[in-house]
Design a protein around this nucleic acid. Structure first.
Lengths: 158, 158
DNA sequence: CCCATTTCCGAAGAATGTTCGGAAGTGTGC
DNA sequence: GCACACTTCCGAACATTCTTCGGAAATGGG
């Protein structure tokens, strides 16, 4: 798909604020609202915009503790990896996860009530699983997201 | 702050879809649109909702490679940590980062054009810094986010 | 049981979202 | 350089939603 500088500007703006009114967005782009609307719709359809999410304060919902669990699998066949992917998504304590290269295979970001919950969850969800060879848990003190989106592609259209 | 089950439902819905129309949201909650609007406004003001963000496909903006860089600091005084926090936010390649307990102090999620860019970035942004004692880079094969929000607090109001 | 306080609702006005036909721009082949 | 096909863009009109606000309903102490 061919994106121009207007598309990149849309992605930047909506990454910062997904609820930016279309009219305001259009003004910042220097195009008509109908044009901005059509652009956003196309970006969604093309998959460049994958979704819109609210960021929630963990404390508000009783999440007292977050951790990053590094997971090493016993086998690394395609099927094992896919199955583990799907399994992770069924765990409500899992906020997100990274499949990485290196000594560990997965970095799993989990949110729990307290340290008891973390211990129980680590044991039940990972340690007892046969495909999991090893886990290592690190408490998360804080998490920050960069509101700015890096754009490396050239603006190949005016 | 006191949240009831309606508030929790709002947080769940907006985490899944930040652009859910207020009218639709109100229908799902079983309240009037004006009520839903006031609730959302209050949740934002109270900080329970920290923001709304579009999720962008990295490939669309020329991000060919993502990596998790584990960083170990030389000193761990409050000032050092705060300064490193602020520094990370100035780097456009940084999408997000975790401050963690354990052998490593930071997990930094970075997005770059290619492996050359990654090497240059790791050297320039981390290795040459005096407060950085050690780094370790892991390529990210894939990243997934769980659309569901875990809610551990009881619904203490009807 | 009553009063103070908070929350909720519904209607109306303001603002935005959305559609669509035509204009303007773009690129290609002749 | 021109004509044609094609794509993109715009602006006005309509539909829908957002937002406000006064009053009703619910809540919780005393």
């Amino acid at each position: 798909m061919h994106l121009d500088r207007t598309d990149f500007a849309i992605l930047r703006e909506l990454r910062k604020n997904a609820r930016l009114p279309n009219k305001t967005l259009a003004e910042r782009l220097g195009v008509a609202p109908s044009t901005a609307l059509e652009r956003v719709r196309r970006l969604r359809a093309a998959g460049a915009i994958q979704g819109f999410h609210a960021e929630i304060d963990p404390r508000a919902v009783g999440i007292g503790l977050q951790a990053m669990i590094s997971v090493r699998l016993a086998r690394h066949a395609r099927g094992d990896v896919d199955a583990f992917h799907a399994y992770l998504l069924t765990l409500r304590e899992v906020l997100s996860f990274y499949h990485v290269a290196g000594a560990n295979d997965y970095l799993v970001h989990v949110a729990v009530r307290d340290s008891d919950h973390l211990r129980d969850f680590a044991l039940d969800a990972f340690t007892t699983r046969p495909e999991v060879a090893h886990i290592e848990t690190s408490l998360i003190f804080s998490f920050r997201r960069n509101p700015d989106l890096p754009v490396y592609r050239d603006a190949d259209e005016p």
